[in-house]
């Protein structure tokens, strides 16, 4: 008799991304995934594969974590002060485990690199949104007269792209006060 699933595919993705976020892609076997999702392994082998669930987990992460976070950032009005608040909020999310382990996209970059085109496309969309959001905030900062060298906007945006990566390592080894100081200093480079 075919197994009847009592969970929708979307519910399975939501659960699967929790596991991928903390254990990565390679660190999860089909068996572990099935147990975590409370489905039989045949579901993972024949119906909703690990690859499929992983790709959709990245999509889930983007639409539920990073997109709303960045939309909020783009809607702010205080330029560099808003950017500082954004990074402070990121520190909190990392330390209080709202983000259970670093940023899923950063973890995936380190673990999977450009393993396949589909994943690379996801990175590209993600980093485009991130860069554009930083540029929106930098424009506001320029409008507010907070930036002495507006012609350096693109350099600053590229530099800021790195912050989420350095933070993804530093939060693991530094106390909160040090992370806050680090953010303040990083933002002092935007002058």
């Amino acid at each position: 008799m075919p197994q009847v699933l009592n969970q929708s595919y979307d519910q399975l993705v939501e659960k699967a991304q929790e596991l991928f976020w903390t254990q990565g892609y390679k660190g999860v076997t089909a068996k572990e995934l099935a147990a975590y999702l409370d489905v039989s392994t045949s579901v993972i082998y024949n119906k909703f594969t690990k690859d499929m669930l992983f790709m959709d987990s990245l999509g889930y992460y983007t639409s539920n974590y990073s997109d709303p976070f960045l939309k909020q950032l783009r809607e702010t009005t205080e330029g560099l002060d808003s950017l500082r608040d954004f990074f402070y909020a990121l520190i909190d999310a990392l330390l209080d485990k709202t983000f259970p382990k670093s940023c899923l996209m950063v973890n995936t970059v380190v673990e999977m690199r450009n393993a396949n085109q589909e994943i690379t496309d996801v990175y590209q969309r993600y980093f485009e949104t991130l860069t554009n959001s930083y540029k929106v905030v930098l424009d506001k900062a320029i409008g507010l007269g907070q930036i002495k060298y507006p012609e350096k906007k693109n350099e600053y945006a590229e530099f800021l792209l790195g912050v989420i990566f350095s933070m993804s390592i530093l939060y693991k080894i530094q106390p909160k006060e040090q992370l806050i100081e680090f953010i303040d200093e990083q933002l002092s480079f935007i002058e």
Partner: peptide, 29 residues
């Protein structure tokens, strides 16, 4: 911090992109 960034972000960069990202980071700092 730039080291941490380069050892993660730059893994998905082309040769040109990684050289640019690192040079930009050094310059800004």
């Amino acid at each position: 911090a730039l080291f941490c960034t380069s050892m993660s972000f730059c893994l998905i960069h082309s040769e040109k992109q990684k050289q640019h990202h690192i040079a930009n980071g050094i310059e800004v700092i």
